[in-house]
Amino acid sequence: MNSPVGVISPGRQGILRRLADTLWRRPRLLLLLMLALPVSWLGVIYLGSLVALLVQSFFSIDEFSGLINYEFTLKTYRELLIPANLDIIVRTVSMAAVVTLAAVVVAFPIAYYAARYARGKWKAAFYIGVMLPLWSSYLVKIYAWKLVLAREGILNWLFDKLHLTWLLDAYLSLPLIGGNSLSVSYTGTFLVFLYVWLPFMILPLQASLERVPASLLEASADLGASAPQTFRHVVLPLSLPGVIAGSIFTFSLTLGDYIIPQIIGSSRLFIGQAVYTHQGTAGNIPLAAAFAVVPIVIMGVYLWMAKRAGAFDAL
């Protein structure tokens, strides 16, 4: 028991002890073992299934029997580019862009107020107000909106009481954004998208606005900048990472959603619905996979442009 203690102790006996020694001496091995499971989850299950889906887009479908033909072909991509499908893509991307812009405009004042002025219980009220819609079921909210926007719905009733039905009718008679009632128009789809995704814009924006030091705003004012100038040259550039983060959420969520346009809107398909129809019901997995590639490509381009615009420099 009185063995001399050296600088490097000799290895101990027993499997567990040896194992412990080995891991202690080789931290990289320990790291590898600990990360193996989560990384393989990300690699195999998360990315692997995505790759499996994308590979499908290079197969084609036998048009009559609906069986998939497992041979490499670009036929499915040609099919993706027919005018009716391009319409779907353009429609979805425009909707996502408009929803994102509107979300920035609506969210900015709210987030600014919460970051700069709200204190104590008002701050708590702000968080609850923003988060509350996220706690209730997504479907319940959409069906509620269907009733709000319906021809016999609450909004119509309100306009009627205010004797403003002519205003609503004039708006609905506009081409493209109008329709027979709000619930079957693009405006309705837009409003519901905006409502459902707004928290995803407010929260990152608020976080980034809180990091803008008050001293910079004072300095700007001391140097004679007007409020709009301060906003343009100080607040906006510094909060841009928050805007970009929020817009990634609202943009990609709108690109992929298939429930809102199915319940509220004019039955014109969005990308998510096209994926759902082709994969879930028509069994045309190749075309559905090709449609699923579209948002990935669009988001890739979007992130690349955001990076070029310097959105990530402040991260």
Binding site: F64, A84, N85, D87, R91, R268, L269, A274, T277
Partner: peptide, 17 residues
């Protein structure tokens, strides 16, 4: 005209094409 054309054309018609 076979069924698959009905599928893609009807999506087009609903889309306003």
């Amino acid at each position: 005209v076979p069924y698959y054309r009905w599928v893609s054309d009807y999506i087009g018609v609903i889309g306003g094409r």
